[in-house]
Simulated scan of single mutants.
Amino acid sequence: MPVHQKHEIVRCERCGSPFECKANSFTKCQCAKVSLTLNETQYVSEQYDGCLCAGCLMALKEEFAILLNIR
Rank of each mutant, 00 (worst) to 15 (best):
A23L: 13
K6G: 09
E40Y: 03
P2N: 03
E20L: 10
Q47W: 05
E62D: 11
V44P: 06
P18R: 09
A59C: 15
L52W: 02
C15R: 01
L67P: 00
E62S: 09
S17M: 09
P18M: 13
K28T: 06
Q30M: 07
T37C: 07
K28H: 10
E40D: 03
C31E: 09
N39K: 14
C51G: 07
R71P: 06
C15Y: 00
K28R: 15
G50M: 02
Q5L: 12
I70G: 03
L36M: 11
P18A: 14
C29A: 02
A32D: 11
N24F: 12
V44W: 11
E8P: 09
T27I: 03
C29Y: 07
Q47A: 09
L67H: 06
S45F: 05
V44I: 14
E20T: 06
L36K: 05
R14G: 00
S45Y: 11
V3I: 09
T37L: 02
V3A: 07
Y48W: 02
K61P: 01
L60W: 00
A32Y: 14
C29H: 07
K22H: 14
E63L: 04
Y43Q: 11
M1N: 06
F26E: 13
N39G: 11
L67K: 12
C12E: 10
V3N: 00
N69K: 08
A23T: 07
K61G: 08
A65Q: 09
P18E: 15
N39T: 13
S17G: 10
R14Y: 00
C51V: 02
L68H: 02
F26C: 03
A32T: 01
E13R: 03
T41F: 01
V3H: 02
V34G: 07
I66T: 01
C31W: 11
K28V: 02
V34P: 12
K61S: 14
F64P: 01
K28M: 09
K22D: 11
G16Q: 05
E63Y: 01
R11Q: 14
N69W: 00
A59D: 15
N24K: 03
I9Q: 08
Y43K: 12
L52I: 00
I9S: 11
M58K: 15
F64V: 00
V44D: 08
R11F: 07
C21G: 12
L52Q: 05
K22Q: 15
F19C: 04
R11W: 03
E8D: 12
M58T: 15
F26Q: 08
I9H: 04
N24L: 08
E63T: 08
F26G: 03
K22W: 06
S17W: 10
L36D: 12
K22M: 15
E46N: 12
R11H: 15
Y48A: 12
F26Y: 06
